[in-house]
Design a protein around this nucleic acid. Structure first.
Lengths: 256, 256
DNA sequence: CGTGCTGTTGAGGACGATCAATGACGGTGG
DNA sequence: CCACCGTCATTGATCGTCCTCAACAGCACG
């Protein structure tokens, strides 16, 4: 992977590179074509909508730094968080198709963020020309679906303690996968509640339990997992739904 | 659409044709190549696992007749239903990637079913050769993800009555989209419960309420919606998440 | 005529929501 | 420098939706 990093990529595209790599996209020349069409946007402040409710979707957004979430505000005023995004993740693949429902769903920066955008026409062209780009976006979509399925069982099957634990596990795992190895989960209790389908108050109580269990540190308001294993145990966490199993080698074998 | 139907397709592939069509795949010649590699399998009995827990995934499965569901059995013994499938739907696109997690998730026939299978090597080849095949499977995956997102809000945001109603609405809508216009939903209360994340008992009580409201007929054990509109009202149903907005024309414009 | 599956009914109880306040922190402006 | 505000976190009390357990009824099946 390191082999793919070039000085020219130092603009902050490494996360995207890593992501494409994990999706089995390892051809350097093809990569270049896609990377060249990315335009950067830095310094997006916390709380801002990266992909707004209103704007017409003409470009794809890739998160390059920070944390974001895909959410929807219900008529009741409740907020439902569908997904958290980390550097390298595509934030609005769904918009490529559902320009309409745009009105209600948006992507919000949960910390300061940097993003890259790719005009649809460039993406289209890349997909047309390079089969692996098409595969990469497909796989990215599959991964999101896999996370959604797990989210569904999380919400329907697990009680609050396990549910929150599972959510935390997932964040830790995904962060580690992109090289962030700390136990800190840069989210608020509110955000976790909106993702878990629990009230903030209850999440707070769960947090206290997790602290008593020695899983979370008392370092408020920062959420920090100090006992990784115990957490995974509580959550009954099985990371397979997150990991693309050596897809690339498989593709190669089958298709070339 | 009718224009695409040929005598040779009378083998039962119309549902697949319709599906591909709705995914913007309208090139007859390219279609042929894919359709030719489908092998049929009829007369699968109710209750059987179409895509089993154990078998190594070497082929893609398309439902051609009947109703099926994607489910997983938890350690607790509970069953979580992730998706319902109707004729034309791809049942195991996820397996194309996650051969591993196969162990726990399976696709079950909820009525008598017919399926078609496409060997991975044929699918790979079709994807390689025809860009629109790649797009079709990508879009199919996006649609599944969209349904999953809606399922997530359904489970976390809506109380039992609305939740069940919403689920029923979705089934009606999807069935109508493939030409089945009756108010009958060919599922059991148990299946709906497992999809809604409710106990069967509670679903049953909700059903009684829906009957009192004149939405469901008393025709047990068949579930039949007699007041479509009232149901959509209760569920606050917005079908946009199900409909691919004129994708095909869009693709054409942008890419050709 | 049992056996199994789906659907139905009742009673009790639990998990988590809601309402109402309060505390801690950081930024802003007087 | 302090008063003020907004956001996030915390606590207690009450309440409701939905679950669990336990039975039973209808129906199709062999």
């Amino acid at each position: 992977m390191a082999g793919l990093m070039k000085p020219a990529d130092a603009g902050g595209l490494q996360p995207l590179l890593r992501k494409l790599n994990s999706l089995g996209f390892d051809d350097e020349d093809e990569l270049r074509c896609l990377l060249d069409s990315v335009s950067l946007q830095r310094g997006i402040p916390l709380g801002e909508d990266i992909v707004g409710a209103g704007d017409a979707p003409r470009r794809l957004t890739v998160l390059l730094a920070g944390v974001a979430c895909l959410y929807q505000t219900m008529e009741s005023g409740e907020r439902q968080i569908y997904a958290f995004y980390y550097p390298g993740d595509f934030c609005d693949l769904h918009r490529y198709v559902w320009s309409e429902r745009a009105a209600e769903t948006a992507v919000r920066a949960l910390t300061g963020c940097s993003i890259g955008t790719i005009e649809y026409r460039d993406l289209d062209e890349a997909i047309e020309r390079h089969r692996k780009v098409a595969r990469a976006v497909w796989l990215a979509t599959m991964l999101e679906a896999s996370i959604l399925r797990e989210g569904l069982t999380n919400v329907t099957q697990r009680p609050a303690l396990q549910r929150v634990s599972h959510l935390l596990c997932e964040q830790l795992h995904r962060r580690r996968a992109i090289g962030i190895d700390s136990g800190v989960v840069p989210l608020t209790q509110i955000e976790l509640a909106d993702a878990a389908g629990l009230s903030v108050i209850h999440v707070n109580r769960v947090f206290q339990d997790l602290q008593k269990l020695g899983v979370l540190s008392a370092s408020n308001p920062t959420i920090e997992v100090v006992n990784w294993e115990r957490l995974a145990e509580i959550a009954n966490f099985d990371s397979r739904y997150l990991t693309m199993p050596a897809t690339l080698s498989k593709w190669e074998v089958r298709t070339e």
